[in-house]
Nucleic acid binder design. Sequence first.
DNA 1: TTGAAAGTTCTCAAAAAGTTCACTACTATT
DNA 2: AATAGTAGTGAACTTTTTGAGAACTTTCAA
Lengths: 198, 198
Amino acid sequence: MLTTQQKKVQDFIRAFIQRHGHSPSLREIGEGVDIQSRGAVHRHVQTLIDRGVLKRARSGWRTLQLVDPEEMSTSLPLLGKIAAGRPIEAIPGHDEINIAEMLLGEDRYVLQVEGDSMIDAGILDADLVVIQRTDTADDGEIVVALIDDEEATLKRLFHLSGRRIKLVAENRNLAPLIYPADRVRIQGVLTGQLRTYR
Amino acid sequence: MLTTQQKKVQDFIRAFIQRHGHSPSLREIGEGVDIQSRGAVHRHVQTLIDRGVLKRARSGWRTLQLVDPEEMSTSLPLLGKIAAGRPIEAIPGHDEINIAEMLLGEDRYVLQVEGDSMIDAGILDADLVVIQRTDTADDGEIVVALIDDEEATLKRLFHLSGRRIKLVAENRNLAPLIYPADRVRIQGVLTGQLRTYR
DNA sequence: TTGAAAGTTCTCAAAAAGTTCACTACTATT
DNA sequence: AATAGTAGTGAACTTTTTGAGAACTTTCAA
């Protein structure tokens, strides 16, 4: 549990964020709970972070966040695994899954897939795919590739010897394509996929 | 979280748009928050854009827009459709997609699929499926069904004559199962599916 | 086509905020 | 009395943010 001082600091931070919409600086916290030393305030804040009550959104100023609020809005309960012929089996250690956190991220965007060229990878016509912007990818990853600065395509990528690149459609009816590396520009790699029914 | 200065800039822009109906120029922002340097103002604006608080409607002058705080946290840009052999094609009318909104909802939960029984429906082993809790479903919908109050399974459902129910695995190697209706309890229907890579 | 207005990129120096540390003091437990 | 845990102070240090100004590119309308 938290000490009374730690709780005071936590309460002050919550109130400050509530009122100002952004987190207080250490000096402001100090003024709020009547501590002169920024060092002491820092130690309190650090303990709260260690206890998991607070977190820093990133390094920098005024980046403190309360952990508990939020979270709820983008989560769903994760009941467990379903397999044909067995009862639903709980997954130990997980009971909530944050949908947004799984798919969102810096420099990501969404594309709608048209066609069946990735059908064997479980990506169907009209599915949405989440792409992470990057210009490099490892062998075997599914990438958005731009060919001759003109055609865009979603394919599994392999580097071949002799500065050539193989782009594989995951569809047994389509043959792999091989290009010299300088005709292919990688625009992003596949990081997520989603579909809605009904 | 924004710094005080960034917040000042944001507030000024909001007020300016409110009053004038269009966004301010960098110089006007500078005058508003008392910064001489257009470069400095530009840096503030750029950070606000990076943080997702602002966006540019298009390139050009006075094209800043405030992002709806609701959508901010769970949206990704929707660039368009991708099909093999063509440039990425923009989808008119859509430029953002709210991931959370698509998948979340009352009485929904997530299951992790084990096995390949739905592979022809593009649902692979280890995929996550979002299930809407309900005890009825229409023909052709994919449901979580409980058989004899014991086995759980994810199958496509059809009602047959004579109070019988057909459960179809979307896998050409597995035959459909037919049960009397009283041995099958529907627990929910599939409303979403997602997968992450990397 | 052209020029002014607007946006972008850069470097520099300074200010503001966060971090670490040594020292001290109070309290509760052993 | 010794020990450990919690606190506060103040100084030194590092990192991040900031504003200024100059040079450059893009946009837009005459």
